[in-house]
Design a protein around this nucleic acid. Structure first.
Length: 481
RNA sequence: GGUCGGUUCAUCUAAGGGUUAGGAUUCAAGAUUUUCAUUCUUGCCAUAGGGGUUCGAAUCCCCUACCGACUGCCA
């Protein structure tokens, strides 16, 4: 079997979105699984859309994601250059060959003429006007310097069939195909031409790309045939959707890799999640390291239908990764989130508590908000069916808790539980209810980084007592009104 | 409009003619945890509709509906 060579060919037009990342991932996994090469090629043939910084974003993303390419603009390789704008002369040479073989022709039509071809439903189909120009007419225009594009000459009859490893055999009538522009009048190739030339020259064995290219693939096959080149294996991928109707788009902002990173998602978790969108490993496993993904990846598991991106499930998967981090690693990762906390607290303790309780790092500010901002919380938090607690109960029980708490000198978990125990005996209220009330009374928050005793320890005796008294006061005021 | 592709719980998906249609996330209930969370158990929830073929269809065929992509000198 020939060497497997896959490529990731993004156009540098901004951020790297999750769908693109998955395309890169699948290509990478497939190459690695088969001991092949993963190539990066920059498709910057649209000068108007190219953004300077975008190439750096691509390198950065690939690096953070751990998808290292074997060949590319920065790493080199024997199929360079790997940036399409640096390959202009190559495309021109091949376009010339196609013209000589009558598989392409020069088109001198103006934008205005092209626009006039638009039908009532807003569609436009080129009428092959310049295909019928005589040799002399063409030479004259060329000599006169009339701007021109090179168009692919598509047969007007017959069928073109291609095989896709995901979607199977697809056949279209050639008359449905357009005489696509191959070389633009600015001398740059279109994607339609460059991808064919480059994939061939770079000896790409398997073409992984979004299914939006499914309908132009017949045109590509026609080009391969015209050149007499071997056709690569096609692997078209279903789209990742934001919801039932919309593709994940760059405009959403939260659809790109870096944003997820900024929100505190771990690269490994994102990759793991994205790998499973549109591909299944044929068993019930959901957590995979990149090595395991390489081992299990198989084109047969790729599905044909699009998948909706579910951040809730990503959060769950991410929490699995968070939990398996070492305490040190988690603490190091969480530390920056503590910067905004003014009140001094035991950060190591906080990290230990937080690690099993968050989905993403960005949950931390919300969970720790009570440390600085406590007053004025909603008293209805005392009501809990589960803990059999109520505001009324808080009022009757808080004075006893405070009294007992004031007596102890050692302010640690065990001692605080003793306080609860004594209060429970005194008042006849279940410890679970007491703990609920105390937790709310010292944090004013429903979701906290720990239980009642842990929150008290975190806050210290003085602050805990101050808060208990404040809460009692608030509860009393509530009942006076 | 045309062409191509798709359609299983809310979401990601399994079941390549024969299962009570399975798993996961979410949600709900219970258990464990001296507390929040974790963990565990249980539950809720799906084959788009209609015709065929077949002893038997989520699975094969046809029609309809819906969704998406393409229909650019974007990629």
């Amino acid at each position: 079997m020939d060497t497997v060579r896959t490529r990731f060919a993004p156009s540098p037009t901004g951020f790297m979105h999750i769908g693109n990342l998955r395309t890169a991932l699948y290509g990478y996994l497939f190459a690695k699984k088969h001991g092949g090469k993963f190539i990066l090629r920059i498709e910057d043939t649209d000068q108007e859309r190219t953004i300077d910084d975008a190439v750096r974003v691509i390198y950065r993303t690939l690096q953070l994601a751990g998808l290292q390419h074997d060949e590319g603009p920065d790493t080199g390789g024997d199929c360079g250059p790997y940036v399409q704008s640096a390959r202009k002369s190559i495309y021109l040479r091949y376009a010339k060959e196609l013209i000589d073989r009558r598989h392409a022709y020069c088109c001198f039509c103006s934008r205005e003429r092209l626009d006039s071809l638009t039908d009532e439903s807003g569609n436009r189909r080129y009428d092959k006007h310049c295909l019928h120009l005589s040799q002399e007419e063409t030479m004259e225009k060329l000599a006169a310097g009339v701007p021109f594009a090179v168009r692919q000459k598509v047969p007007e009859t017959g069928y073109t069939t291609f095989t896709d490893l995901v979607y199977g055999d697809i056949t279209v009538e050639n008359r449905e195909l357009h005489d696509n522009v191959l070389i633009k009048s600015d001398g740059f190739p279109t994607y339609n031409f460059a991808n064919v030339v480059d994939d061939h020259l770079m000896r790409i064995s398997h073409v992984f790309r979004g299914m939006e290219y499914l309908s132009s693939t017949p045109n590509y096959n026609l080009l391969y045939h015209a050149f007499g080149w071997e056709i690569p294996q096609y692997v078209h991928l279903p789209h990742i959707m934001r919801d039932k109707h919309h593709k994940l788009s760059k405009r959403d902002g939260d659809a790109n890799f870096e944003d997820f990173l900024n929100k505190g998602f771990l690269p490994a978790a994102i990759l793991n999640y994205v790998a499973l969108l549109g591909w299944n490993p044929k068993n019930d496993t959901e957590k995979f390291t990149i090595e395991e993904l390489i081992e299990h990846f198989d084109i047969n598991g790729i599905s044909k239908s699009s998948a909706v991106f579910d951040e809730v499930k990503l959060r769950w998967l991410n929490s699995l990764y968070v939990k398996e981090m070492s305490q040190e690693a988690f603490h190091a990762a969480a530390k920056p989130c503590y910067k905004t906390i003014d009140t001094p607290v035991d950060e190591v303790l906080l990290s230990r508590l937080l690690q099993t309780r968050i989905g993403v790092l960005s949950d931390i500010p919300g969970m720790t908000a009570f440390i600085d901002a406590f007053e004025g919380y909603n008293l209805s938090l005392f009501d809990s069916k589960d803990a059999k607690s109520s505001l009324q109960l808080a009022q009757t029980v808080l004075p006893a808790v405070i009294e007992e708490a004031e007596k102890i000198t050692v302010w640690e978990n065990d001692e605080i539980f003793d306080v609860m125990e004594r209060t429970s005996v005194q008042t006849g209220v279940k410890k679970k209810s007491l703990l609920w009330i105390v937790r709310i009374a010292v944090t004013g928050q429903l979701s906290t980084p720990g239980g009642a005793s842990e929150m008290c320890v975190l806050l210290g005796k003085a602050e805990s007592l101050r808060r208990l008294k404040y809460s009692l006061e608030q509860v009393n005021i509530n009942f006076q009104i």
